[in-house]
Amino acid sequence: MRAMTVVPGKAGSASVGEVAEPPEADGTMLVEGVLAGICGTDLELVAGEFGSGRAGADQLVLGHESLGQVLEAPPGSGFSSGDLVAGIVRRPDPEPCPACARGEWDFCRNGLYTERGIKVEDGYGAERWRVDPYFAVRVPAELGRLGVLVEPASILTKAWEQVDHVGGRSWYEPKQVLVTGAGPIGLLAALIAAQRGYGVHVLDRSDEGPKPQLVRDLGGSFLTDLGDLQVQPDVVIEATGAGPVVVEAAKLLAPAGVMCLAGISPGPDRIDVQMDALVRQLVVRNAALVGTVNAAKRHYVDAVDVLLAADQTWLERLITRTVPLSDWPSALTKKPGDIKVVVDLRA
Rank of each mutant, 00 (worst) to 15 (best):
S80Y: 08
G82R: 00
P98K: 10
S81Q: 15
D83Q: 00
P92D: 10
S80V: 14
P96L: 06
D106C: 07
L84H: 03
L112S: 08
E115D: 12
R90E: 07
R90F: 06
C108M: 09
D106V: 00
F79E: 07
R102S: 12
W105S: 13
G82T: 03
R91V: 03
F107K: 13
T114R: 14
N110Q: 10
R90S: 10
N110D: 11
G111Q: 07
A86S: 15
L112H: 15
R109W: 04
D93P: 03
P96Q: 01
C100K: 01
I88N: 01
W105K: 07
F107H: 15
D83K: 04
I88E: 10
E95N: 12
C108V: 06
L84V: 05
F79R: 15
S80H: 11
G111Y: 12
L84Y: 05
P98A: 11
D93N: 14
A99N: 15
G111K: 05
V85A: 01
P96C: 02
E95G: 15
G103S: 11
I88A: 11
E104Q: 14
F79W: 08
F107N: 14
D106W: 09
G82E: 05
V85N: 01
G82M: 02
G87P: 06
F79D: 15
P94Q: 07
D83F: 00
S81F: 02
G82Q: 03
F107C: 14
C97M: 06
R109A: 11
G87H: 03
E104C: 02
S80W: 07
V89F: 04
N110R: 09
P96S: 08
P96M: 04
R90Q: 12
D83A: 00
A86T: 14
G103A: 09
A101E: 13
E104L: 14
P96K: 02
S81E: 14
P96I: 06
R102N: 07
F79S: 14
E115P: 10
S81Y: 01
R109F: 02
C108W: 13
R102A: 02
R91E: 10
E95D: 12
L84K: 02
C100G: 07
R102E: 13
T114F: 00
D83C: 00
D83V: 00
G103Q: 12
F107D: 13
A101M: 04
I88P: 03
G87D: 06
F79C: 15
C100V: 06
C97A: 08
E95R: 11
A101P: 04
E104T: 06
C108D: 13
A101N: 08
P94S: 12
S80D: 10
F107W: 07
E104G: 01
E104A: 14
E104Y: 09
R102P: 05
G111L: 08
A101D: 10
G103W: 15
P98L: 10
F107T: 11
P98T: 10
A99Q: 14
V89N: 09
D93Y: 06
A99T: 11
D106Y: 11
V89R: 06
F107P: 01
R102V: 12
A86I: 03
L84T: 02
E115A: 10
R102T: 14
V85Q: 01
R90G: 03
A86P: 04
C97S: 03
C100N: 12
P94A: 05
P96Y: 06
C108F: 08
R91C: 02
E95A: 10
C97H: 02
R90P: 02
C108I: 04
